[in-house]
Design a protein around this nucleic acid. Sequence first.
DNA 1: GACACGCTTTGACCTACATCAAACTGAAAG
DNA 2: CTTTCAGTTTGATGTAGGTCAAAGCGTGTC
Lengths: 248, 248
Amino acid sequence: MNTPDVLNVGHDCGACPIRHRAVCARCEADELQTLEQIKYYRSYQAGQTVIWSGDRMDFVASVVTGIATLTQTMEDGRRQMVGLLLPSDFVGRPGRQVAAYDVTATTDLVMCCFRKKPFEEMMAKTPHVAQRLLEMTLDELDAAREWMLLLGRKTAREKIASLLAIIARRDAHLKLKSAKGNIVFDLPLTREEMADYLGLTLETVSRQVSALKRDGVIVLEGKRHIVVPDFDRLLEETGDDSDGGLLV
Amino acid sequence: MNTPDVLNVGHDCGACPIRHRAVCARCEADELQTLEQIKYYRSYQAGQTVIWSGDRMDFVASVVTGIATLTQTMEDGRRQMVGLLLPSDFVGRPGRQVAAYDVTATTDLVMCCFRKKPFEEMMAKTPHVAQRLLEMTLDELDAAREWMLLLGRKTAREKIASLLAIIARRDAHLKLKSAKGNIVFDLPLTREEMADYLGLTLETVSRQVSALKRDGVIVLEGKRHIVVPDFDRLLEETGDDSDGGLLV
DNA sequence: GACACGCTTTGACCTACATCAAACTGAAAG
DNA sequence: CTTTCAGTTTGATGTAGGTCAAAGCGTGTC
């Protein structure tokens, strides 16, 4: 096995077309050996909670397969998703003892974990890892800020379109397919989870998904399987700038 | 001068009570010398735009005095603030050529800048800096996620109370005062800027500020000067958990 | 086959906040 | 002292999305 999960975290290889996933010629570097020694796997079933906010968290991890969410809950039960973790995403914060969010598996989930202590020691020694982690965290921060624009200023319809576009893009990217023609993917979230992502109610999500379907922006096969016949059309519905955020 | 601005970025000294601000015994470390050589200052007047989204950005910087905001704007003019930069906060992303957000001075502003190229070279050499930057970015990510909960799920009144609490805390912290008794501070934002922060309109902000004043949660002296007679009371109005997010 | 259970859709109604509009306030400019 | 202007407040009205309620749908179970 080529341990792509380990590469996600430890290594940034310019030669790899898809940085977080590909196998890389420099796999023998020291930090990878170290990571290899301290890693272990955990599996969770769909719906299982990985960690509760406030729990002691003695590991960091990266998602290998499946989807997990980070959510915050208010005392009265209002919930807001604050992170959507797809394969190759990183969970956990070096330097923090206690989880700040609920982490939940929304599909069956496999994570590649590293015990926090040795991971931090390794980080202190190998600048590679800290730099890669910084880069990944900055990407997450950008995503969070786009998400803030969505939550604060977009209409319900724009929110739905944006979420579909995000998932479609991630999905297509992970499958290495180009974005020409039909884009097909399975929604990994229930209406309620979509609502928690978007700051809406599930009823509003349902209505707006139906509306996009009625207007021919998407085609629904069953409840979960989605076909996007014209990706540009979907992007128009998001309210985002047309130049599509190609910042480097 | 003890160059506290430089310390913000380059150094994490456990001995300093207030980490980002204090002067530190290890100031002679190499990276500080390097930073010292490549730094320069820029001043902006209140209202001036520091960088437009999409502009080439050849420096990174930290705020020395004053307040700046990061905002995103949609084609039709809807605006959402996505970052509020107070003294000691960091702007700019190593590795990115182009600004992703509008950066605006909301008060007179002094920034301590570092040209990007030498800063990045220095980062590659001194792990200290990358690690400090990672830590700061993770803090920002947490702040962004709390902000997402605010935007997605809080009522207008809770949003206002939360913003006041955030500013009060930052302000008190920067002044090294304890949080007992009256907390007094000047609002650094106009109603419109508050609205852009909170995903509201300025009219709603005005109404809710008046309501909090009517209910005795805050005392307004003029339009900007605010007295919080009972900080716990204000916190109750935020809708947040009472244990106040003391995550380490 | 019928039942139960989780998820989704649809409808009727309601309300928090947006929108539009006008008046107020205070500081700066002449 | 008057004018101007940016920022703010306040009021009247509109509406997107929330709330409550009921019905539909697919899958697994007895």
